[in-house]
Design a protein around this nucleic acid. Sequence first.
RNA 1: GCCCCCAUCGUCUAGGGGACCAGGACGUGACCCUUUCAAGGUCAAGACCGGGGUUCGAAUCCCCGUGGGGGCACCA
Length: 500
Amino acid sequence: MPSPRDTQPVRVRFAPSPTGLLHLGGARTAMYNFLLARQTGGQFILRFEDTDQKRYDPAAEQDLIDGLHWLGLRWDEGPDIGGQHAPYRQSERKDVYKPFAAQLLESGHAFYCFCTRAELEAKRQEQKARREQARYAGPCRDLSPEAAIARVAAGEDHVIRFKMPKEGSITVTDRLRGDITFENRNLDDYVIVKSDGLPVYHLAAMVDDHLMGITHVFRGEEWIPTFPLHVHIYRAFGWQEPEWVHLSLFLKPSGKGKMSKRDTQAMQLTGQTIFIKDMQALGYLPEAVLNWVALMGWSYDDSTEFFTLDDLVQKFSLDRLNPSNAAIDFRKFDHFNGLHIRALAPEELARRILPFFEQAGIPASLEALTRIAPLIRERMVTLDEAPEWTAFFFKDSVEPDPASLVAKDLNPAQSLAALQQAVARLEALPEWTHEAMEPPLRALVEELGLKAGQLFGILRSAIAAQPVSPPLFESMAILGREVSLARLRRALALLEQQVK
RNA sequence: GCCCCCAUCGUCUAGGGGACCAGGACGUGACCCUUUCAAGGUCAAGACCGGGGUUCGAAUCCCCGUGGGGGCACCA
């Protein structure tokens, strides 16, 4: 069911509330918005829904902005850069909502409510005791407008509620699920303006989306229960609705429910996170985050899985969105990270791993890392592994475990003899390159009747002094003749000690 | 409890009446390659929640169960 509205330039928005850090779900929603905007030549807008001053977290705004930047999702209008419809922070738009609330009051679609929280809570308890549906049951709905206005004028505390029809039903249309019908009697007289005068999401988001010309609304499935309210509001104003796209939810790895605070904390202990901010430090690539998350709820075909952001801009389609929830699978995240690392050019990989060396206190230059990058690119899962893989390149000398210098199935004396000959051949080399050293050493393996792994294992251990390391010849070439030979001679000495 | 959404391998998914003894990927196992570790390659095991319909024919459409998930705030 493709809609012609998907191919016209769209206006979409990512509208998080600055109450917490940017996480996977938000990143996916933001990306889908971004993709559709770029694909159609439309606009992607960032808007902060901060009408709840109690939950506001000043650090969250910056985190949201930083996270989106890191992911490479740029917006065309937003609180930090302005735009045609500024401001893009709802707390700064208090005055724009007022006339709309007034209009709803006048047209009879809303009413003033003077019930206190305590009264409401008591009613809810009663309803619960009677096993009834909990919903607004106060007297204010039936107050005459004159009486209500008089009480407001007298300074009485109040909220504004949407006057939900008691009868009938409403059918709303979600892009992924089709028509959904709700009985109005199951809907509540929701508060749309709080006693502090600020609208709640239900009003603020609808007004802003309309005013900002939003054509497609992407949001999580948790909004479906209040979806009919939102459409009621649109209809009360006589506005044209956007395309509503309710995305599936991300479930915890076990598949049992949404991520809770407790879950996210437990996750950090195992090096897993749903927060974009932490992913960079853990060595993940924004490309991998995007690729991974794009495929949770969307697919291109029956086999393509590797996508860059540009690919996604080109290939994304609302019609291939999947409505069922998805359990987060971090192993797949690692897989995508490896794929994207391998897709990086050496100099680019070097640039990405440089911060990890700085953090480890290893004075590695970009030039050196660029030469080393190809050796580790094929074996890395996360960027933070780079320093441990390559630490030996940046040491003046290394101290291999003596036992590691004795090859499998050989005794120390035999290992020493093999290494002596290997060193002799290497010393005789006219030039110190991978191409120059491999043939004579392979020949030596042959002559000694050894297996390649036996001889090269000794050399690798002498050079890198770590149980696993990048390939030998490439490593020696980068290390240079002097350093390599010095390390081999040191290994010779260690072996001699074992022989006597 | 009430309302709503969803339902294919352990996980992410393809499939939108015959092309399906259900395809891909992650993970798992085996093998190949191999100087370690990876990467890469090959192969293998592994799923249509159940029951009714509709139809010549259903993973695909409908209904009922069941299961999972979400929501029921002056939060978003």
